[in-house]
Simulated scan of single mutants.
Amino acid sequence: MPQPVLSLDALRALDAIARKGSFAAAAEALYKVPSALSYTIAKLEQDLGVQLFDRSRQRAQLTSAGLLLLEQGRELLQASQRLEEQVRQLDSGWEQRLRIVVDTIMPWAPLWQLSADFTALERFTRLQFSEQVMAGTWEALLRDRCDMALGLAGEGVNAQVELHLLGYAEFAFAVPPTHPLAQRVATTPDEPVRREELLAFTAVVVADSAAEMPGRDSGLFAAGHVLQVPTMQAKIAAQLAGIGVGFLPVHLIQQELLTQQLVVLTTEIPRAPVPLYLGWRKDVVTGQACRWWREHLLNLPWQQLLTPGELKAHV
């Protein structure tokens, strides 16, 4: 296999000549004597077997081959600089990658501002967000498929996981105002929606994303038919379309309630609030990026975000 003839020093020399406009100015910028810079370029041309500069004119001009090498070489120089910075960053405790799993019940908006703030730190840690559902969120954390999980639901007891309660998600039975159940409640507002009434409608449920752990469906109740969807946003869309009914997280349907695309009905089977946690594994050594995200996530006003206001049932 032939030995490579390109070196970063040679590429830096070529870049400096192109930027400064002359060998003399480039040599000064690189703290070299002009003869040393001329030798570097001549040696590179000899090793490559191509002419990089047209020296027939008073001022040397890059040839087509020289322009190609300059363009591609600058990409190599930038990649080299990024690699050096990443190595130094890793040595200082900043991870190359941070994986955050977000349960489908959580709002995404607060994460975008944190992402912008994190990017402003000018670290090279690559953020990787993914979405899971219920036991799938736990599974991703326990199977080491993420560094932290946002929106873990349940009683919050697991010996392997450090858990911090964020708040409680509240649910409302919400349908479009044109839905038959909404029309019925409008005529008899003192009567909540009964269990037997639900049998006439399709229940929209979010399927648990767990592949190994026992899962369950979100929002499942006794109904005539069941429509299973992959995310909470898909469930909201299905109920807005009038395809089915079910309980929805209040914090995710604020706009739909304000614009009366959805109305809340009182039912005989109210759904209890669900505690949500931020969690990470106790046995995994974490870096500075993970610690930064933990601190800033825990400082967000989650209870306010999860319980934005009191709702009134449709009358």
Rank of each mutant, 00 (worst) to 15 (best):
P2K: 14
P2F: 14
Q3H: 10
V5Y: 11
A10G: 14
I17Y: 05
R19S: 11
A26T: 04
Y31I: 01
Y31T: 02
V33W: 01
A36F: 05
A36L: 05
A36P: 00
T40S: 07
Q46M: 01
L48E: 03
Q51N: 07
L52C: 03
F53E: 02
F53K: 02
R59P: 01
A60Q: 08
Q61V: 09
T63A: 12
S64G: 12
E71H: 12
Q72H: 12
L76H: 08
L77I: 09
Q78I: 14
L83P: 00
Q86C: 05
R88M: 14
R88Y: 14
D91T: 12
S92Y: 05
W94S: 01
W94H: 02
L98Y: 08
L98D: 07
V102I: 15
P107F: 10
P110R: 11
S115V: 10
F118K: 05
A120P: 11
L121V: 13
E122P: 12
F124C: 14
R126P: 06
R126H: 15
Q128T: 13
F129L: 15
S130G: 15
A140R: 15
D144P: 06
M148W: 08
L150G: 10
A153C: 13
Q160G: 04
V161H: 04
L166V: 07
F171P: 00
F173V: 00
V175D: 00
P176L: 05
Q183R: 14
T188M: 03
P189M: 03
R195Q: 02
E197P: 00
A203L: 06
A203T: 07
V206H: 11
S218G: 14
L220N: 00
F221K: 02
F221N: 00
A223S: 06
V226A: 05
P230H: 07
P230M: 08
A238Y: 06
I243D: 10
G246D: 01
V250N: 01
Q254M: 10
E256Q: 13
Q260M: 04
Q261E: 12
L262H: 01
V264H: 03
T267P: 00
P270K: 09
R271Q: 12
L276S: 10
L278H: 06
A289W: 06
R294L: 11
L297C: 12
W302M: 05
Q304Y: 04
L306T: 12
G309V: 05
G309S: 07
